[in-house]
Amino acid sequence: MTNPIADPGHGHSPAAWVAVTIMLIGFAIGTVFFCLEQSTGVWISAAIVVIGAITGVVLAKAGYGVKGPKYAPKAH
């Protein structure tokens, strides 16, 4: 008899979804500014990506991460 592989819940939390969404928006905006050769916009977009990563960490520490008390996993 084999044991089922424990699912660590990679990316299945509100903290992960919010962080990735913010970072994707930052990358998309940065791509547009890069094509328009607007270096200031590219740097602002890079800051948005960093803010997204920080937001994910803050939300995870606030309990919205995979093992946080405010996270309720859904059955697949």
Rank of each mutant, 00 (worst) to 15 (best):
L59C: 00
G65E: 06
I51R: 03
E37T: 05
Y64E: 01
P4F: 15
A16D: 06
M1N: 08
L24R: 07
G52H: 07
L36C: 10
G9H: 01
H12M: 12
P8A: 06
P8H: 09
V58G: 06
G30I: 04
P73C: 04
I44Q: 12
T55V: 12
P73Y: 00
V66N: 01
Q38L: 10
V18G: 02
H12Q: 14
M1G: 12
S13E: 03
A47H: 05
G65F: 01
P4M: 10
A53N: 11
H10T: 09
A62E: 00
G65H: 00
P14E: 10
M1R: 09
K61D: 00
V32K: 00
V42L: 12
G30L: 07
W43D: 09
A72R: 10
P73M: 03
G56Y: 06
V18T: 11
I22L: 15
T55H: 01
G65T: 04
M23S: 12
P14Y: 14
A47M: 10
F34E: 11
K67E: 08
W17F: 14
Q38A: 13
S13A: 08
V20A: 15
A46Q: 15
K70Q: 06
L24T: 05
V49R: 03
G11M: 02
G52T: 05
V20Y: 13
V66G: 00
N3Q: 12
G68N: 04
V49N: 04
K61Y: 06
P14L: 15
V57G: 05
I48V: 15
P73A: 04
T55Y: 01
I29K: 09
K70I: 02
A19I: 14
A19C: 13
I44S: 11
M1C: 08
V32H: 05
T2N: 12
I44E: 02
M23A: 09
E37Q: 07
S45Q: 08
I29C: 08
A53C: 05
G26F: 04
V42N: 10
T40G: 14
P4T: 10
I51G: 11
I5H: 11
A6H: 07
A15D: 06
G26S: 04
V57E: 08
T40F: 15
W17L: 13
V57D: 08
A15N: 07
V50Q: 05
G41A: 04
S39N: 12
D7E: 12
